[in-house]
């Protein structure tokens, strides 16, 4: 449970000589009733864990696809509580580690400690908050420590050594290496600066490094998996769900995409 489950996942995949595949999916897509089935399909297709997004009105770090997904999930009634109920169901049904992704405001609004307590109770193992840089994440990290959850900190191609050291000192459960400048979304070419970035992170800390932002195809995932301990793919999967004609089509499209990505990180 919690942070330890993430550590043992990385220990296992490092021993297997492969990277972790963590698909991102917004909670409540294509609708709150079908959402669990999507996660079950991804688990069956080889996902190692999940980043579950709590849909938010102002996702600053997200590109058009995840924005649209968030809008649709909110319209379909996916409140933070509904999203956390889904987290509990995903953990129970798949047994895989889950990271909850949201933005600073909903956490502060609820109260940092209460939010972390509720996430821990739902069975989440860690928290990802893209607008809480290391300077502002202290209260979240202390609350997460109390409840045994991990906190993810980001490092970007623009981050210098001092910032990477500050991130390492904050003891994240893994470092999220931002593969591309920009917000989330698919790109034809991606990850050109990832090798150098991961090298700079590894020079400072041996905490696992997971690459994300702009990684969408199996070949991009394979390239990232050669340097990082894990890969996060989001927009490419959310787009498939948004474009599918029916919930069944969404499930099967997603399973195929995740199977291809899972093969690529091995």
């Amino acid at each position: 449970m919690g942070r330890e489950r993430l550590s043992s996942l990385f220990a296992r995949t490092r021993a297997e000589g492969r990277a972790v595949l963590l698909p991102y999916m917004t909670a409540g897509l294509p609708d709150p009733g079908t959402s669990l089935a999507l996660f079950e399909a991804m688990a069956g297709a080889g996902a190692d864990g999940f980043e579950v997004g709590i849909p938010y009105t102002d996702p600053l770090m997200d590109g058009p696809v995840i924005q649209q997904g968030s809008e649709r999930a909110i319209e379909a009634g996916t409140s933070p509580d509904v999203a956390l109920e889904l987290v509990a169901a995903v953990v129970e049904s798949t047994g895989l580690p889950v990271l909850v992704m949201t933005y600073a405001n909903p956490i502060l609004h609820r109260g940092v400690d209460e939010f972390v307590a509720v996430a821990a109770e739902a069975g989440a193992d860690g928290v990802i908050v893209p607008d809480l840089p290391v300077e502002e994440s202290g209260p979240l990290r202390r609350a997460a420590d109390r409840h045994g959850l991990g906190v993810v900190q980001f490092v970007a191609p623009t981050s210098g050594t001092a910032r990477i050291e500050a991130v390492a000192a904050a003891d994240p459960c893994f470092v999220y290496a931002v593969a591309e400048m920009g917000v989330t979304g698919e790109r034809a070419e991606a990850g050109g600066r990832l090798d150098g970035l991961v090298g700079r992170i590894r020079a400072v800390t041996d905490v696992p490094v997971v690459a994300g932002v702009g990684i969408s195809t199996p070949s991009q995932a394979a390239a990232a998996a050669r340097v990082a301990d894990g890969v996060i793919v989001g927009s490419a999967l959310v787009r498939r769900v948004l474009e599918a004609d029916s919930p069944d089509a969404a499930t099967s499209e997603l399973a195929q995409a995740v199977a291809d990505l899972a093969a690529a990180v091995r």
């Binding site: 770090m61 900190q153 970007a156 210098g160 931002v178 400048m181």
Partner: peptide, 12 residues
């Protein structure tokens, strides 16, 4: 106030 921004912007 403060600086609640993505890491990519923090160095800037």
């Amino acid at each position: 106030g403060g600086r609640f921004a993505p890491e990519t912007l923090m160095p800037a």
